[in-house]
Design a protein around this nucleic acid. Structure first.
Length: 212
DNA sequence: ATCCCGAGGG
DNA sequence: CCCTCTGGAT
C-alpha cells in the first residue's frame, strides 16, 4: 500500500472514531494484566462489567489468591471460558508473588511464561505498562491488516513487524485502537459491513470483490 | 445467526 | 494447523 493510501486510511479511521471509547478499564499494571487475560473471546463491554465486580474485592495478587478459584469464577462467570480464566488468574497471581515480588514482570519471556498469558496479552502489557513500541495484534487487527493489504502476514508477529515498519509515527499511537474498532464494528469476520466502510477505497479485499 | 481485544493442547 | 473452552449480547 502506498504512503498516500496509508495516510488517507488512517485519516479516515481517525475521523470516524476520534475518541477511544471502548478501552478496557484498569488502574495499574496488575489490573491491566487481569483485564486483558479476561478479554480473550469476550467483548470489551462485558469485560469492563466483570472487572468492576472483580476488582472491588480483588485488585492485587494477594487479594486475588485469597478470593480463590471459586470466588473468581462466580464473579467472571458471565464472560464464558470462565473456568480456565479463573484458574489461570489465581495461578498467575501466585506466580507473581512467588517469583516477581508481586509485581508484573517487564520481560516478554517472563510474561508469556505466566498461565493464560500469550503473545498478544504480553504485547499489551509491554506497550501500555512499559512503553515498548509494539502493537498487540489480535484477531481484529490481523484480519484488517490482511484484508486491506496494509500489513499482510501469515502470523501475528509478522503483521506486527510490518505495521511497525509501515505505519507513520504520527499514527502509530492510535493505530492499535482504530484498527481494533474497525475490525470490531465494520470489518467483521464473516459478514463485513463494506457498504458503510470508510476505508473501502483503500482495501484490497473490497477491490478484489468489486465493492464500490 | 453472529460475534467477542486468546491461549493451550493435540 | 486444528480443536476446545464458554456464556452473553445483539
Amino acid at each position: 500500500m502506498s504512503p498516500d493510501a496509508i495516510e488517507q486510511l488512517f485519516e479516515a479511521l481517525a475521523r470516524e472514531r476520534p475518541e477511544p471509547s471502548t478501552e478496557l478499564v484498569y488502574r495499574d499494571p496488575f489490573t491491566l494484566l487481569v483485564a486483558v487475560v479476561l478479554s480473550g473471546q469476550a467483548t470489551d463491554v462485558a469485560v469492563n462489567r466483570v472487572t468492576a465486580d472483580l476488582f472491588a474485592v480483588a485488585d492485587t495478587p494477594a487479594n486475588l489468591v485469597a478470593l480463590g478459584v471459586e470466588g473468581v469464577e462466580t464473579r467472571i462467570k458471565r464472560l464464558g471460558l470462565y473456568r480456565n480464566k479463573a484458574k489461570n488468574l489465581v495461578a498467575l497471581s501466585e506466580r507473581l508473588l512467588a517469583e516477581h515480588a508481586g509485581a508484573v514482570p517487564n520481560r516478554r519471556e517472563a510474561l508469556e511464561a505466566l498461565p493464560g498469558v500469550g503473545r498478544k496479552t504480553a504485547n499489551v502489557v509491554l506497550n501500555e505498562v512499559f512503553g515498548e513500541p509494539t502493537i498487540a495484534v489480535d484477531t481484529h487487527i490481523f484480519r484488517v491488516a490482511n484484508r486491506t493489504g496494509l500489513a499482510p502476514g501469515t502470523t501475528p508477529a509478522e503483521v506486527e513487524r510490518r505495521l511497525l515498519e509501515t505505519v507513520p509515527a504520527r499514527w502509530l499511537a492510535g493505530a492499535h485502537h482504530w484498527l481494533i474498532l474497525h475490525g470490531r464494528y465494520t470489518c467483521t469476520a464473516r459478514k463485513p459491513r463494506c457498504a458503510s466502510c470508510v476505508i473501502r477505497e483503500h482495501c484490497a479485499w473490497a477491490a478484489a470483490r468489486a465493492i464500490p
